[in-house]
Amino acid sequence: MIQQLIFGIVTGSIIALGAIGLSMIYDILDLVNFAHGDFMTLGAYLTFLFNVSLNLNLILAAALGIILTGVISLILDKIMWKKLRDKGAGSITLLITAIGLALVIRNLIVFQWGGSNVGFDLPLSQNLNFHGIMISTSGVLTVVVAALLMIALDLILRKTKIGKAMRALSDNKNLARITGINVDNIILWTWGIGTSFAAVGGVLYGLNTVIRPDMGWFLLLPIFAAVILGGIGNPYGAMVGGLIIGISQEMSTIILPSSYKIAVSFVILILVMLIKPEGIFGEK
């Protein structure tokens, strides 16, 4: 029971890192980014590239992989999303485009690195054992990194001009524009932060399990559930939503076959949509 709770917090931290970016991008760009999970995968593979193929130490490799993933999302905004925005493309057009992008990213990964599992070059680590409860070092690392990033995000959103402008944009995009806020610039910041957080989540997932091309896709459904649970556009809600989903998924393994984990997040998703579609923290 406590064991499952601990697994749940680890999984939940990874889901939360994905959910934050998806939620902000959903809200600010009106884009249901079906490619978001694939950015998590991309972050993990680019880290793998620097770590294993180029022999860099894991921390440096992760930093490079994460930054590069963020930069790729900025380039994609310039060459794709901005053009669609300027044409006035609506949310369904954007959603279908995102599916196309997801196919491209995932299959480029398969093309480059193959379809089978890979792993980082890790020193052998011992699991910590507290009276029969196992905690892996990567699990501890995951929770610590996720918590630090969430604190950092909170500071950015509350203390910096860019962060406040992001919240302003999420409140009212038209007003932001007529107030003189540089909307395109803030959108780039949103992509950068949202996607690099996703990449961190992908790397942490790789540390805890393995890296495979479809890992992001399988994280996407629980991430959607976390976003909707927390309320679209509410990064704090996404954090809490991620933890709730992660813990519920792992706890469910006590009574259900573990292959139905994802079904649990799906059921939560449906219930929230039907009962409180604005999310548990929604005020609307």
Binding site: K161, R167, I178
Partner: peptide, 25 residues
């Protein structure tokens, strides 16, 4: 400067932050 008829503030921002956004540029 222009003040629209409705939806003319950022509701989830504080008063101070709303003013700060006015001087974004």
């Amino acid at each position: 400067s222009y003040v629209p008829q409705d939806k003319n503030t950022f509701p989830s921002l504080s008063v101070r932050e709303n003013l700060e956004m006015g001087a974004f540029i």
